[in-house]
């Protein structure tokens, strides 16, 4: 395994590899933007302290913003799918493929992320087990949000009352699940010292080869390097 990439900035002339395509980055940030607007406006109803914001003009603005952001939220995966279908289906397939290396990752995650230990982590694909778990939860809650949201938006008065109330409850539980993941996600990319480069990947698309080797070794050797060989063969 490659050595640790904590001090990347100190070493110039790093070889860079493309981690996220433009489609992936745009879809990610559109999703991020929609999610934060939905969360912010949704909190008006969830947290009693914010109740004043749910009333009057700000309440109307919040109601409208929540619906507008919901449309954007629903569109985000479509951007990914239409713009970059190959990467979309590859990522989807990856998220649903769980093997021994993923369980190994989960077993060592605490030691690795809390104690900065390396060398015990099994090599990971484009997404490590934690990212796969995040993706699966995002997929499940996406559909829960969309279905229950549409029921509350357009089914008012026409769906059975129990279905409506259940939709409110499921919508709220989905919020709790995603907020917890969201906090972990922000912490790992913005605060955790081992993961500094992952946010660069989402802004610029690239990471250093060293970072890729440490965090996504399988992906680097099996996908990035193989692609590179293909390119060489063609030229």
């Amino acid at each position: 395994m490659a050595s640790v990439a904590t001090d990347v900035a100190a070493r110039p002339e790093q070889a860079l590899v493309l981690r996220f395509t433009a489609a992936e980055r745009v879809a990610h940030w559109v999703h991020f933007f929609a999610f934060t607007v939905l969360l912010g406006t949704g909190m008006f109803l969830y947290v009693p302290w914010f109740q004043p914001f749910a009333l009057g003009a700000s309440g109307e603005a919040a109601r409208l913003a929540h619906r507008a952001a919901a449309v954007v939220f629903m569109a985000a995966p479509l951007i990914y799918l239409i713009w970059s279908p190959r990467e979309f289906f590859y990522s989807l397939k990856e998220s649903f493929s769980w093997g021994a290396d993923d369980w190994g990752w989960l077993k060592n995650a605490w030691n690795y992320y809390a104690h900065g230990r390396t060398g015990t982590m099994p090599p990971q694909g484009k997404y490590n087990a934690g990212q796969k778990f995040n993706a699966l939860t995002q997929i499940v809650t996406f559909w829960l949000f969309v279905i229950t949201g549409l029921v509350m938006w357009f089914g008012r008065g026409s769906v059975p009352p129990d279905l409506f109330l259940l939709s409110v409850v499921v919508h709220d539980l989905s919020v709790i699940a995603t907020v917890l993941l969201f906090m972990l996600h922000i912490y790992l990319v913005a605060v955790h010292p081992l993961m500094r480069e992952s946010i660069t990947a989402m802004f610029e698309g690239t990471v250093s080869e060293e970072f890729a080797a440490e965090h996504h070794g399988k992906w680097l050797t099996e996908r990035v390097f193989r692609k590179r060989k293909d390119v060489k063969r063609q030229t």
């Binding site: 969830y46 992320y113 104690h115 709790i176 917890l180 972990l184 912490y187 605060v191």
Partner: peptide, 29 residues
């Protein structure tokens, strides 16, 4: 609602503990 508050508070505490642990161990690293 209470479940959401408790879960969020626990998550904040957990992440803070992780941050402390990480800072200490990074030196060792």
């Amino acid at each position: 609602q209470p479940f959401g508050y408790v879960a969020t508070a626990l998550a904040v505490v957990g992440l803070a503990l992780n941050w402390v642990a990480t800072r200490r161990s990074r030196l060792n690293h």
